[in-house]
């Protein structure tokens, strides 16, 4: 386990995350800071329609951090900001509908944000992430189920690599998205597959 401590200016969206990170990370000796963005993973979602079929979509732009502490997993901290306006669906009309004021209302709320508040360790590779999810300016408690599928050191690239699968069910009505309740299920299934690396600066920084 490699220890990393970085001091760098992060984007305003991560301000809260940085504060929490500094509070929690400094005492830790086994914490690794992972940068998260779309180059290393996929944030997808699926929603049922009339109980007959499922429609899937993607959030192709996001960024954030994960401070992973393997010796004290409960100290792990996550902070992710998603570009809601970049939402992608099989049809452009579907994506436009999601951007509209009936759904994400990206004109007023261009980003979604998740910040963890605590981590519940179920096993060394299985966690429940308790946190706050903010969509359309509404922040609600949200639990996500995280499983570490793989964690290893890539000798060739000299990077530590961790593959995560994070899932969770979101009630869209809780965030004020109540349109098309007959057609579109209230539960939206979130599925995040991400490969985290240490030592790579995003966006060529």
């Amino acid at each position: 386990m490699r220890t990393r401590q970085r001091r760098e200016w992060l984007r305003p969206a991560f301000g809260i995350g940085v504060v929490v990170w500094l509070m929690t990370a400094l005492p830790a000796v086994a914490a690794s800071l992972y940068r998260i963005d779309q180059r290393y993973g996929v944030i997808s979602f699926s929603v049922g329609s009339l109980g007959l079929f499922t429609t899937e979509g993607l959030f192709p732009r996001f960024e954030g951090e994960l401070l992973l502490d393997t010796e004290a997993p409960e100290r792990t901290h996550i902070d992710v900001t998603i570009d809601a306006g970049a939402v992608a669906m099989p049809l452009q009309d579907q994506a436009d509908l999601l951007r509209s004021d009936a759904y994400f209302d990206t004109a007023h709320f261009p980003a979604e944000h998740f910040v963890s508040t605590s981590i519940q360790v179920l096993s060394p590779t299985h966690f429940v992430i308790h946190g706050l999810l903010r969509i359309r300016g509404v922040a609600m408690p949200q639990d996500l189920d995280a499983v570490v599928k793989d964690r290893h050191f890539d000798q060739e690239r000299q990077l530590e690599v961790a593959d995560f699968v994070v899932t969770g069910d979101i009630k869209r009505s809780a965030f004020g998205m109540v349109a098309d309740q007959i057609m579109v299920s209230d539960t939206v299934r979130l599925a995040i597959r991400i490969r985290l690396t240490v030592g790579v600066q995003p966006h060529g920084e």
Partner: peptide
């Protein structure tokens, strides 16, 4: 319009 999701379907 796509907003008329159910009727469209």
């Amino acid at each position: 319009p796509f907003r008329e999701l159910l009727l469209k379907f």
